[in-house]
Write a protein that binds this DNA or RNA. Structure first.
Lengths: 214, 214
DNA sequence: TCGCCTGTTGACTGACCAGTCAATTTTGCC
DNA sequence: GGCAAAATTGACTGGTCAGTCAACAGGCGA
């Protein structure tokens, strides 16, 4: 608290945001009271309202901050000269690394926004869809180039890809799936391997990097 | 209301449950008041508490009723003598048909339970995982039989498969994806095609039923 | 030193709503 | 018809919290 007390004013906003991540992740947005955020931040109740118009705005800010980074990263990856499979791997990798780096933040974003169709998901629908669209674009280009077959509409492929990632993250969030360095790396490979390679056994050559043979 | 008033007593519980589906789907569980349920059911406020101990219990009931059916169906499908790909297709098909038949109920189950890691998702985690386990089992058996390659751990494959379905449903729930007879059928194919066939272009033969050629 | 502005505090208010309960009606049975 | 049990009603209570606001702190320029 001494630390928080002598922090320069400009940083208080950040402190509150970081505290909110912890508070939202721990209790969930609805169950979390504004006083929990203030307490976690070692700050008076009213100060939250000095920096944010409402409790909602705190969550909005957290989401937008991070989601904009994601959109930028996806765009960058798309701009690079890589095979589509590698682009998808880079995206999966970035999202999983985000979780590894700050599980609470990703938990909040996924649980309270991305997967909350009624409340915040609805509000941020457009932003969320931008990510799908970027991924779909990658798929579409790969199909046009012949690297991906076009049996699947790009929009669906994007949904399947992103859905797989989110489901794995949710597994970790739920503690339904073991997590650790090894599991994070495995997940990246498995997701890309499933979506790109598919589960079907097809005899001929397969990229030997990722495929273990029976 | 005349209709509701003269309904045999035993059905009131059902009427309340059905009303709750509408109310929860429309406003979301948290924003929905018990009085909304009662109003939707044309029933007095207190009657909801005659049949259910709490607002939570109403949602629990809705979820368990339906999820048990899902688990049973998956088990049945697994018991049939079908190629793994067809089993997965049947599962995807069942879930999508469930949505087609009662979008509100599926919306509530997915949005308020399945995807709500903090609140109800946590409560029903075990039940939800049963479904993943059954799907993983199908994958594992197919891998053992050689129909699926074993580059992907069954648990991850199950997550990816279920995640893809849920993401598509969420797309419909969010109105982020067009829905209609054709789209429902397409979705079934696309999901199975993505997860089983993969996106990669691999030259040789592909099941001509589902693959359109460039 | 004074006054001002930004930052900070936390008690308080007003609204909201889940759950209770005593009263009333309906049903089923003799 | 009469009576007990079950179903049904809706006004009311208690607790919870988001958001407000009046007061206070302290840095800084004049």
């Amino acid at each position: 608290m001494a630390a928080a007390a002598r922090t320069p004013a400009a940083d208080k906003r950040r402190i509150i945001l970081d505290a909110a991540v912890v508070a939202f992740a721990t209790r969930g947005f609805h169950a979390c009271r504004v006083s929990d955020i203030a307490e976690e931040a070692n700050v008076a109740y009213g100060l939250v309202y000095h920096y944010f118009r409402s409790k909602d705005e705190v969550l909005d800010t957290l989401f937008l901050e991070r989601w904009d980074v994601l959109l930028e990263v996806i765009s960058e990856i798309d701009g690079e000269d890589l095979p589509a499979r590698e682009k998808l791997r880079a995206i999966a990798s970035f999202i999983i690394e985000s979780y590894r780096h700050d599980p609470n933040l990703m938990k909040v974003i996924i649980v309270e926004v991305t997967r909350a169709a009624n409340s915040f998901g609805r509000t941020h629908l457009a932003k969320i869809r931008e990510a799908y669209a970027l991924i779909a674009e990658i798929v579409a280009k790969a199909q046009a180039a012949g690297t991906f077959r076009d049996a699947v509409a790009p929009a669906f492929a994007a949904l399947a890809f992103y859905g797989a990632i989110e489901q794995v993250l949710t597994g970790w969030i739920f503690d339904a799936l073991p997590q650790g360095e090894a599991e994070f790396e495995d997940a990246k490979s498995f997701i890309v391997e499933t979506i790109c390679g598919g589960l079907d056994a097809v005899e001929p050559f397969r990229d030997p990097t990722s495929a273990r043979t029976v």
